[in-house]
Design a protein around this nucleic acid. Structure first.
Lengths: 188, 188
DNA sequence: TCCATAACTTGACAGTGTCAAGTTCTAGTC
DNA sequence: GACTAGAACTTGACACTGTCAAGTTATGGA
């Protein structure tokens, strides 16, 4: 089966190879040809499955959003604690840097791709659902300040952690630090 | 003076051209040769001043951190209100997307560049100074939860706003939204 | 006036994404 | 079981990229 043609599931293999490569060298240094080589196929094989480079990254982002939604949903259903959803948010970001990086960098992907939109919407829904309970005000504003605050806090923590802006003390146990921080957020 | 050689202040012109180009197409699509063309010089001229592409972006980041520190310091000295420093943080991010993007993407720059380190340290100092007042706990932890919370909240808001993740209602007046959100943060 | 050196150019190289055209396999029909 | 349409992949080419080595031109000080 491992003949030259018909890899079996090249699409999957290419996504995995891309995630691997991004994990090692970041999105900036990502090369489609290197991804192809990693998967053992010719340099133009990715284009056949994904159209172009952004297409491949779009698939990575969509997969990321789906796994992200799974993780958040799981924690929300298990604990019913929105703060724990926040912890899961940063845990996902740190454990899946490659996916996370692509998910929140719109210029890398085809933002209008239906698969991507669907997966991203799933993630958004989980966050909204959790936030609804605590948010009583804000209908006049057109947005929910408490939800925005929680999202910003958690997302900022994740980005700063990933970018290496935090001290070793914080990075020694990021989840503990986030729990400490989340206590500063009061909804009344 | 505007002869082929000795542009006058090509270094400046190249930084400006880079910021312009990033503002139009993002860091991903930034081309050193396009920057050179924009400044009216040969394709290898940037390398002479900055060594390589990361060198140019390092200069952009350093300039960004200096202006950032100026802006934050100005607001802090004028108002003494740390929440207003936060507003200035996101205003800078939105008004200077190109600089901001490069400042917080370490893989784009030479992280060990002394100029960059100095400028980044300046920004850090302003944020620390403002946070000190409100932060009484945390010495045992090795970090200050209140300061971390404020930084995460503000940085996350800025990143999400820039990446286009917020609704039109929020983006209609981001500063108002941030002020609303910041009220959720209580230090006691 | 001379000349060391800074400022920039020219030309080349390997690597990149993308496209068009070719090849090889698979699956379904007769 | 042979035939064929189309999917899966390769090959080769193109323009563009960052970087380097070598060349050219200007400047400022002795």
């Amino acid at each position: 089966m491992n003949t030259a043609y018909h890899h079996g599931d090249l699409r999957r293999a290419l996504i995995d190879a891309a995630v691997e490569a991004i994990g090692e060298t970041g999105t900036g240094a990502l090369s489609l040809r290197a991804v192809a080589k990693r998967a053992g196929v010719s340099h133009a094989a990715p284009a056949h499955h994904f159209g172009d480079k952004a297409g491949l990254l779009t698939a990575v982002a969509a997969e990321g959003f789906d796994r992200f939604a799974d993780a958040l949903e799981g924690v929300w259903e298990a604990t019913g604690d929105f703060a724990e959803v926040g912890v899961a948010y940063v845990r996902f970001a740190i454990d899946n840097r490659a996916h996370f990086e692509v998910m929140f960098r719109p210029e890398l992907t085809h933002q209008d791709d239906p698969e991507l939109r669907r997966a991203a919407a799933r993630s958004g829904a989980v966050l909204d659902r959790g936030a609804d309970r605590t948010d009583t005000e804000g209908d006049a504003l057109g947005y929910r300040p408490a939800a925005l605050a929680a999202w910003s806090l958690v997302h900022g923590f994740a980005e700063l952690a990933i970018a290496g802006n935090f001290s070793p003390e914080v990075m020694a146990d990021p989840e503990a630090a986030l729990r400490e921080i989340a206590r500063k957020l009061r909804f009344d």
